[in-house]
Design a binder for these strands. Structure first.
Lengths: 137, 137
DNA sequence: CAGAATCCCCACGGATACTG
DNA sequence: CAGTATCCGTGGGGATTCTG
């Protein structure tokens, strides 16, 4: 990697990377998908447990998220026709592989978020964005 | 990795992974950030060229995105005080490292999007979502 | 040329109520 | 218990206009 692509022509478009990037970003870029996947990584969970294990998620979003994940083959949904309904969600191999990929991203954040935070703070102190002590409004 | 964490207690929250995941997702989860980074990976570009190289992006979003990237130390902004203003944006080492991490994700998509598409199609055929031939509206 | 400012639409997602 | 249905606020982001 890092082939140091010679910046030759204008190149108005990228190879095909961007398409894949958008694809995966559309999948995990939302607010809850990766959280649900991460939670399911510990093992199968039923709806209510999953709901309790993802603090802050609404029933609606849990349902929507889990439904999309099932549609894409990232999780499996198993419903037991019992008196109190019981539905168990489990990560598939595919879902597991996605989680690993996402963890790599988390690894980047873990290794660089300090640098980002430092640079952000410095940026504020430097007053690049606004004139120093600019009045409100 | 993948230490097969024993799913013992209720564990209402995850270790610290989720925090990092959210952090990096808040950064690259939007519509244009990774596209801009990918474009800048080929080499420094001035505003207009960058705008032309990212098809579909508006001036507003280009400005906003590039500003955030600069604030976080992922790109540098260099303005030349000339008659027609010239501003050049360049990826920093930090930005480059993030791009590499994102490329890993793209790699996942490249290797599995077929499986996802297949499963999605199968899901439609099975008619899991709706009754077959449901009328429009 | 490189933005800053303004207006506005609509999709994402939260809260709540109802059902099998 | 495991959803489904509905209403509705917020803000991400597009189009357009103005400025240094």
């Amino acid at each position: 990697m890092a082939v140091r692509r010679k910046l030759s022509g204008p190149c108005t478009a990228w190879p095909e990377d961007s398409a894949f990037i958008r694809e995966v970003l559309d999948r995990i870029g939302d607010k809850w998908t990766v959280l649900v996947i991460s939670t399911l990584a510990s093992g199968p969970l039923r709806y209510s447990d999953l709901h309790a294990s993802v603090p802050g998620i609404s029933q609606r979003m849990l349902t929507v998220t889990v439904k999309e994940l099932e549609r894409d083959g990232l999780v499996t949904r198993t419903a037991y026709p019992e008196v109190p309904p019981r539905v168990v969600y489990e990560l598939t191999e595919l879902g597991q592989s996605l989680r690993e990929a996402v963890l790599a991203l988390a690894g980047w954040a873990a290794g660089h978020h300090e640098a980002v935070a430092a640079h952000r703070a410095q940026h504020v102190l430097t007053g690049v964005g606004r004139a120093a002590a600019a009045g409100p409004r």
